[in-house]
């Protein structure tokens, strides 16, 4: 009897030790996964910085592309990117926010609303190159806009529209119902409530979504290649119907060349692109923080 109890307690202790051991082993594996992700990110950034910094200069930013790596710069691509982003925002913001307002404030619960919602979720995960083919057929071809900034901007607007819609809906959904009820109690119509209460209060959240959408658009190369093809530009676009190139395409162009010097230029271009992206994200975080403080008060 005593012997048995002793035996059981020994088995029990051994089993506990084993379970704890397995737990610890897996804990180290999970920790390792986090480290792999972080080390991957750091390696990538270090690689870009060490290769790119020697090539980075004011001359690099203000020069046109060239066959001679020493003289080449990213100016036309930078200007193309600014043009493209500006126009994309003009199309995306009113339509994306409008769709979000409709779905949150107006839409009845019926099959059409469900179809629109399902459809937006699907559009969010259509590969970006497919949008490029859409733009190539409809904007470049049928609407005869040519391989222009306008065609590129319309294409990118469609690509990032789901991001703006989803983010704006979240921002609008987060507003307390009391805001709207107070306005209705004052006798406002639905549109007055939307225009004077809902949109201003949800604006910081909407802006955050717009910035995130733009930072997605700024790094997109594939759909823009389908629209603009690969062009060698030594002028700055002056109208929306001009041909253009953007930073990711210029970087891609430099990566594809065999000479090592162009790899360095590509890294320098990547640094400029990442700095722009980082500033946009910092702005989004700043807006989000301000917004959170305001609702808590």
């Amino acid at each position: 009897m005593t012997f048995n109890t002793l035996n059981y307690s020994k088995m029990y202790n051994r089993r506990i030790a084993m379970r704890k051991g397995i737990g610890d082993a897996f804990y180290s594996l999970f920790l390792l996964s986090v480290l792999v992700g972080i080390i991957g990110l750091i390696t990538l950034l270090v690689q870009v910085l060490t290769e790119g910094i020697p090539w980075l200069s004011w001359r690099f930013i203000t020069s046109f592309p060239s066959r001679h790596p020493q003289e080449a710069g990213i100016f036309s691509a930078l200007m193309g990117t600014i043009w493209l982003m500006g126009l994309t925002a003009v199309f995306t913001v009113p339509i994306g926010v409008g769709a979000a307002i409709y779905l949150e404030e107006y839409a009845p619960k019926n099959w059409l609303t469900r179809l629109i919602e399902l459809n937006i979720a699907n559009l969010a995960s259509v590969p970006s190159i497919i949008y490029g083919l859409l733009g190539l057929t409809i904007f470049v071809g049928w609407m005869a806009l040519g391989r222009s900034i306008l065609a590129g901007a319309l294409t990118l607007s469609l690509l990032v529209m789901p991001i703006v819609i989803l983010a704006s809906r979240e921002a609008i959904k987060a507003l307390p119902l009391t805001y709207r009820e107070a306005a209705y109690a004052l006798g406002a119509t639905r549109w007055q409530v939307t225009k004077s209460v809902v949109v201003p209060a949800a604006l910081p959240g909407i802006l955050t979504g717009v910035i995130l959408a733009m930072s997605r658009a700024i790094g997109e190369a594939a759909p823009v290649i389908a629209i603009s093809a690969l062009v060698y530009l030594t002028f700055i676009p002056t109208s929306p119907l001009d041909r253009f190139t953007v930073m990711p395409i210029q970087i891609f162009n430099w990566i594809s060349r065999p000479q090592n010097e162009f790899r360095g230029l590509a890294a320098a271009g990547i640094i400029v692109l990442l700095i722009i992206l980082l500033s946009m994200n910092a702005l989004a975080i700043f807006l989000r923080n301000r917004y959170q403080v305001r609702t808590e008060v």
């Binding site: 009113p94 339509i95 994306g96 926010v97 409008g98 769709a99 307002i101 409709y102 779905l103 404030e105 107006y106 839409a107 179809l115 629109i116 459809n119 937006i120 699907n122 559009l123 259509v126 497919i130 949008y131 083919l133 859409l134 190539l136 057929t137 409809i138 469609l158 529209m161 789901p162 819609i165 639905r190 549109w191």
Partner: peptide, 22 residues
């Protein structure tokens, strides 16, 4: 209200555009 509905319907037009162009 009509403008907002058109904005929402544009997402469906996008899908139709993708299918038609391809």
């Amino acid at each position: 209200q009509i403008f907002l509905l058109i904005c929402a319907l544009l997402s469906i037009a996008t899908t139709v555009g993708i299918v038609v162009s391809l």
